[in-house]
Design a protein around this nucleic acid. Structure first.
Lengths: 136, 136
DNA sequence: CCGCATCCTCTACGATACTG
DNA sequence: CAGTATCGTAGAGGATGCGG
């Protein structure tokens, strides 16, 4: 809503036209808008406390350890998640949202809640769409 | 936040453990958490009025027509977007968010705004992380 | 102008096996 | 337990050309 500004003309490089240009915000939004990123953030955020690798893994249906490790590394690199290694034997590794990550979780959880609330409506829309393609 | 409920035990099929199971909400969240979906929704939502195909295409940096068409079809099927064909010559096609889509835009725009606000912080975190890997 | 069809490339991702 | 490394495949996604 903040960036809403109707275009005065449909000309290139207009103020509105440029709002979504090659800026870092679009790149970051693209990074966030990823299946494993959102599921990982939601898992970590809704648990609230530090979680062990295996725990996270169990919480996210269908994630492979490769994808989970890769996603956690990316989130750590981006400052969303902190990784704590406890050199016991065997090793214990805990992941936790940073304050930055908690901020993202705040908005992502709204998306998750919206999805949970509207999934029935979406299913209905799909069924309707598909039936129209089938018969017609 | 609504689904927050600490686990009483780390046992499988516990109430918390199951919160993100094979339910349709996770599937829908996975569908939404997609680069082109979020960029398309944000473009349509921030413009507010019906947009022509070519206009949307110009607004989203780096999208191919294949991906845009595919994404718009998916969003139409899911009831987020309505597609209006005006049989002029040449054809004019307009896309617009449905009420359902506007609801999703409401939460997605928060994610976009968060990304716009925090992109600098994330860049710093990346630079710090990378420097630690390089030297040491 | 809109967008489907085809072809082709590349990488995201899963499966498996191996280490500290 | 928490990874890394390697390999193979399916699907994402770009380029091009045609059709209503």
């Amino acid at each position: 809503m903040a960036t809403k500004a109707k275009p005065t003309r449909g000309v290139e490089t207009g103020t509105y036209e440029a709002y979504m240009q090659d800026c870092p915000a679009v790149a970051l939004l693209s990074t966030i808008s990823n299946r494993w990123v959102s599921l990982t953030m939601c898992t970590l955020g809704s648990f609230g406390d530090p979680m062990r690798y295996s725990h996270i893994s169990r919480e996210i249906p269908g994630v492979s350890q490769k994808m989970l490790t890769q996603t956690l590394r990316m989130l750590e690199r981006d400052g969303m998640v902190s990784r704590t290694v406890t050199p016991t034997v065997p090793v214990r590794v805990d992941y936790e949202l940073t304050p930055l990550g908690q901020g993202l979780y705040g908005v992502l959880s709204q998306v998750r809640d919206w999805a949970a609330d509207k999934s029935d409506e979406v299913d209905d829309a799909r069924a309707l769409y598909d039936s129209r393609q089938t018969d017609q």
